[in-house]
Amino acid sequence: MAALVAGCGLPRGGPTKREIFAGSVQNEGDAFVLAVNDRVTRATAVQPALGFSDAFRSAGVLGSDTIRPGDTLGLTIWENVDDGLLSSEGTNFTTLEEVQVDGSGFIFVPYAGRIRAAGNTPEAVRRIVTERLAEQTPDPQVAVRRLAGDGASVSISGVAGGPGVYPIERPTRTLSAMLAAAGGVAVAPEVAQVTVVRGDRRETVWYQDLFEDPRFDIALRDGDRILIEEDSRAFTVLGATGAQAQVPFERQTLSAVEALARVGGLQTAAADPTGVFVFRNEPEAIARQVLARDDLIGAQRMIYVLDLTQPNGMFLARDFLIRDSDTLYVTEAPFTQWSRVISAFTGTLGTVSQVDSAASAISGDE
């Protein structure tokens, strides 16, 4: 049997526990192998630090309703007569689209004349136009809205409900309100990230945090670029689990237990619950804290070991957080390898017996 096993490589899903431990620094390898405990879970519980800086959070609300030269306005005028000054035959209203505020701050409205818009709000312009037209048509009704243009506006791109350029108006002065005006996000809110580019600064926040922490619902500024992206983090699962795959994160934090559940858990007939490994390149600061050493330089290869059979094994796996690019590997139980050896051995004996029987039959025929 020993000769048979040594002479052929039995199929298996990956390295054994013994082989992994053989590659540890203690055995002159290049990776630190460390059993997970409460101290390790606390030291490694580091997630992407997303959020806006004080500079973004302290910016005051922009006076967005004040019209400036270069803004574009839209006007709708209703007249209380069938044959009005501006309306066409059969209608009692007219719409003036994209009325540009000139460099001097004025707009021109037929029958109302040249009106100063810069420095006024849309409401003030509405009152002025209404007063001017009231002298020539009975009880006119006017609506004024500021469109995206050369005025204060932001651009929204990425997986947003409605990408485009939007003016900063009274209802959309803050980030959450502007995103709502743009149709929200087109991915699950749990994995949506919002990046605001302002000048040469680029800062990102989780979409859900906009509603859970009011400090992140920042005031917008003219020229802000807003990018909506889906969380790109993922981890890889290999070994004796329900599936071997690269799995995307579906929430901000993910524990080892949750990661295993995402792929169907351990294979009942093959997995070794004492050999759940997490392979990771740990940043220098965290590696020094975990190993209680100050002589480490650069990122370190770490292999964390979870033993689910320990009294607190499940609790530790629940508290140990998976991070981006981690590899979660579950070794096979020794019984599984032994079963393969037995199967290979008995299968070989069966083949030899069949050959011998065939040879005997041929001899008898002769």
Results as ranks from 00 to 15, higher is better:
T268Q: 14
T268A: 15
A269R: 06
A269M: 09
A270V: 13
A271G: 03
D272F: 03
P273L: 06
P273M: 05
T274G: 14
G275V: 15
G275D: 14
V278H: 04
V278G: 04
F279V: 11
F279Q: 08
R280G: 10
P283D: 13
A285F: 14
I286P: 00
I286N: 03
A287E: 07
A287T: 08
V290G: 10
V290F: 12
V290S: 12
V290D: 13
V290R: 12
V290W: 11
V290P: 15
L291N: 09
D295L: 01
D295T: 05
L296N: 09
G298F: 05
G298T: 04
A299E: 15
A299W: 02
Q300K: 14
Q300L: 13
M302R: 05
I303F: 10
Y304H: 05
D307F: 12
D307Q: 07
L308Y: 13
Q310G: 06
Q310F: 03
Q310Y: 04
P311R: 07
N312R: 13
N312L: 06
L316E: 03
D319M: 09
D319Y: 04
D319H: 08
F320E: 05
L321Y: 06
L321M: 14
I322V: 08
R323I: 10
R323N: 12
R323A: 12
D324W: 06
D324P: 01
D326K: 08
D326S: 08
T327M: 13
T327W: 02
T327R: 11
